[in-house]
Amino acid sequence: MRDFSTRARYGMKAACTVVALLGLVVTGMTPVAAAPPSKNADLVGNDVSWPQCGKTLTTGQAFAIVGVTGGLANNTNPCLAEQLAWAARSTGGTVQPKVALYVNTANPGHEGTWWPSSNIYPDVEVPNPYGVCRAPAGEPEGPVDLPCSYMYGYAKAYDDATIRGVTDPGTYFWWLDVETENSWQIDTENATALNRATLEGMVDYFESITAGGKNAEGKAAGVGIYSTSYQWGIIAGTVPSSSSLAGLPSWLAGAKTLRGAKSNCSLPGLTPGSPVTVTQYVSAGLDYDYSCKG
């Protein structure tokens, strides 16, 4: 997750592509170095993922957020185990957990490598607030509608928690990385509603496994959203207060300095009632994270 100076309004982690490019662009974060010095000795964190595989990571970060997926919503960060071990050495000192996770998100529809055909995943029937995802007779995939979009998100979250190598997934805070670089529905009347349904499916699954969960520090598990207001608006549009996306913590990208990251803590969250709890800034092309409540 990073910001390139040539696209300040995006503020995210890899060279931006047009939203219409469906599902074929891998995103990532830049190599991590020691956090830049601060006159006020502010405690900052770092986020890492597959681009840092084989690289020497910084030491002394207050907290760390590790990418579980490898740039797309349907693959795995090959260095997840090593990076989780690195993250566990975070020093703490903020309200953020020493170790949190993030996952890529998308709604590729039929352009992806897999699309659901029913409300069953992997072998149980999933309660679906949008109704029944059902493949037409003779077809392997369901339509790109609200029920199947919800199921796609639920399935991706299930995979993130169960097959990518995360131990005790219910004890982590999970961030949904929502960026225009990944595959989304566009140019249809209900595109943002379809995208929201996918994200709601992910949220509902993660909330089902993190409810009441705490890590070794005693900090609550849960789920939040990483994006910028610009990208979020393109992908998800206006979120109704009845959505499970409403009120989730926001991790805002887009700042270029620590001072800017601090200022962004006062911005509105990405959804109704959403508190901004983490902001991201970029220094010398590297990503850092600031805890808005210390």
Score class of each variant (00 low, 15 high):
15 A>K: 06
38 S>N: 15
38 S>R: 13
39 K>V: 11
42 D>E: 15
52 Q>K: 01
52 Q>E: 12
53 C>M: 08
55 K>V: 11
56 T>V: 14
57 L>D: 10
61 Q>V: 00
65 I>P: 04
66 V>A: 14
75 N>S: 10
81 A>C: 08
86 W>F: 05
88 A>Y: 02
91 T>I: 12
100 A>P: 02
104 N>A: 13
113 T>G: 12
120 I>R: 08
120 I>N: 08
139 E>V: 12
146 L>P: 04
148 C>Y: 04
148 C>I: 05
150 Y>G: 03
153 G>F: 13
154 Y>T: 09
155 A>L: 11
159 D>E: 15
168 D>H: 13
173 F>K: 01
173 F>C: 03
176 L>R: 08
183 S>T: 04
183 S>F: 09
192 T>W: 00
192 T>Y: 00
194 L>I: 04
195 N>C: 06
208 S>M: 01
211 A>N: 00
223 V>G: 11
230 Y>M: 03
236 A>I: 00
245 L>V: 07
249 P>T: 04
256 K>W: 13
257 T>Q: 07
261 A>T: 05
264 N>W: 08
269 G>S: 08
276 V>M: 09
277 T>F: 03
279 T>G: 01
281 Y>P: 03
284 A>H: 11
286 L>H: 15
291 S>C: 14
291 S>Y: 10
291 S>T: 04
